[in-house]
Computed example of a mutant assay.
Amino acid sequence: MARAFTPKVVTANDLLEGDVIYLTTANTWTRELQAAELITDEAEAQLRLLEAQSQPQIAVGAYLADAKPGEQGPEPTHFREEFRRTGPSNYAHGKQEAKLEATADV
């Protein structure tokens, strides 16, 4: 028996910068998971994935990631997606560097 469909977001990596990106309801890409479209219909999820995959000049490796509704927007349900959205862990750069700079200014 097939598993019941769970909510998803479309995610990929930015072609030029490598950052994790998410597809929005406006068919644009964002680096913020909370701004991503939370898809609750399986057929719609497949259509949105095809739309993402048709944009290779922007996004690479698009796939559907499990997510859940949260107060601020979609939230990851798996540690892999939490890890991807926070950025690399080997040293502070990109998103992590920006967070360090913001806290240093306080």
Rank of each mutant, 00 (worst) to 15 (best):
F79W: 13
H93S: 15
A59T: 02
T77Q: 01
E32L: 03
L16F: 12
G18N: 08
Q55M: 08
R84W: 06
A12T: 04
D66C: 05
R31P: 01
D66W: 02
L100C: 03
G70A: 03
E82G: 15
A62T: 08
L100V: 00
T24F: 06
L49N: 08
N90K: 09
D41E: 12
T11I: 07
L47H: 10
L33Y: 13
Q53S: 11
R84A: 14
H93A: 15
L47P: 00
D41F: 08
E97R: 08
L64P: 10
L49A: 10
T103S: 02
L47R: 15
L64H: 09
T86C: 04
A26K: 12
A92E: 09
A4T: 15
A92F: 11
T40Y: 10
T25F: 01
A102T: 00
E42F: 00
T30W: 04
I39R: 01
E42K: 12
A35E: 11
E37M: 07
A62V: 01
F79M: 09
A98D: 02
M1V: 12
L33N: 11
L50A: 15
Q55W: 03
L16S: 12
P56M: 06
E44S: 11
F5R: 07
T6R: 09
Y63V: 03
E44A: 11
A102Q: 02
Q46C: 00
F83P: 04
V10M: 06
V9S: 07
A12H: 02
E81H: 15
I39D: 01
A26I: 01
D14V: 09
Y22D: 05
E97H: 01
Q57W: 14
P74W: 04
A98C: 01
K99G: 00
P88Q: 13
E51M: 06
E51R: 09
T24H: 07
A59W: 10
I39E: 00
N27L: 05
Q55L: 08
R31Q: 11
A104E: 03
F79C: 11
F79N: 10
M1C: 09
P76F: 13
R48P: 04
